[in-house]
Amino acid sequence: MSEVKITAELRTEFGKGAARRTRRAHLVPAVIYGHGADPKHVSVPGHELLLALRTANVLISLEIDGKSELVIPKAVQRDPLRGHLEHVDLLSVKRGEKVTVEIPVQTEGELAPGGNLLEHVLNTLPVEAEATHIPTAVTVSVEGLEAGASILAKDIELPKGSTLATDEDAVVIQIVAAQVEAVEETEEEGEEPAAAVEDAAPEA
């Protein structure tokens, strides 16, 4: 995994008002945690951070006051309507250190004929990996699987250097039988309206 270098600034103002001013300056408030140190409050360029976060578990080299610090994203808060970054929690890591992260589960291949459905029970898989070699994703083949089949966590081949960090019998993907709904015709072609037609009474 390649590193993304971003220059950040230490924050000295806190609170909602300060956060709004930071965002108006096209920066994102962030907090760095880890290794038992006190949390470090920084401001990160919004556009650069947004591009970096397109890669899951991206490794970021933050340049702060002339010093570099390796971090990975742990929690990202976005505006629910516009999707803008509002706040990010970053975990400080070291080379050679093992970390537990969630990696996306991707699928490849075609299911057996029959119109069955593929259901992701888990969209991500918890794994333990070296901080500078975190897999971007894991790919699972569903080629030829039929309804009732399932793929467990222990069935997935992990990238070299990664180990499973969840119950090995956890269901990750399952194949569900297609539900066919019978459509009943309420009227046949040429059928008269269901409402009864009354004959007019003869005039006196």
Rank of each mutant, 00 (worst) to 15 (best):
M1V: 13
V4F: 02
A8E: 06
L10Y: 02
T12H: 03
E13H: 06
F14Q: 06
K16T: 03
K16V: 00
A18P: 06
A18C: 03
R20I: 12
R21D: 04
R23I: 03
A25I: 03
H26A: 14
L27P: 13
L27C: 10
V31C: 06
A37V: 09
D38G: 04
K40Q: 15
K40I: 12
V42R: 00
V44Q: 01
P45E: 03
G46T: 13
H47Y: 07
H47M: 11
L50Y: 03
L50Q: 04
L50E: 15
L51D: 13
A56T: 15
A56P: 01
N57V: 00
V58S: 10
I64K: 02
G66R: 05
E69C: 07
E69K: 05
E69A: 11
L70N: 02
K74E: 13
Q77G: 01
Q77V: 13
D79Y: 00
G83C: 10
H84G: 12
E86P: 02
H87W: 00
V88T: 09
V88W: 02
V93H: 02
K94E: 14
K94G: 06
E97L: 11
K98T: 15
T100D: 00
E110A: 08
L111C: 12
G115M: 10
N116L: 07
E119P: 04
E119R: 12
H120Y: 12
V121A: 01
T124V: 02
L125M: 12
P126L: 09
A129G: 13
A131V: 13
P135K: 12
T136G: 08
T136W: 01
V138G: 02
S141I: 14
E143T: 14
G144D: 13
L145V: 07
G148D: 10
G148Y: 05
A149I: 08
I151S: 06
L152K: 08
L152Y: 03
A153D: 09
D155F: 05
D155N: 14
I156R: 12
E157I: 14
E157V: 14
E157P: 06
E157F: 01
T163L: 10
T163C: 08
A165Y: 07
D167A: 13
D169W: 03
A170F: 01
A170T: 14
V171C: 05
V172Q: 09
I173Q: 06
I175W: 05
I175M: 10
V176T: 15
V180I: 14
E181K: 02
V183N: 01
V183I: 04
E184W: 05
E184K: 11
E188Q: 06
G190F: 06
E191F: 12
E192W: 03
A194I: 14
A194C: 06
A195I: 14
V197H: 07
A200R: 07
A201E: 15
A201C: 07
A201V: 15
A201Y: 03
P202D: 13
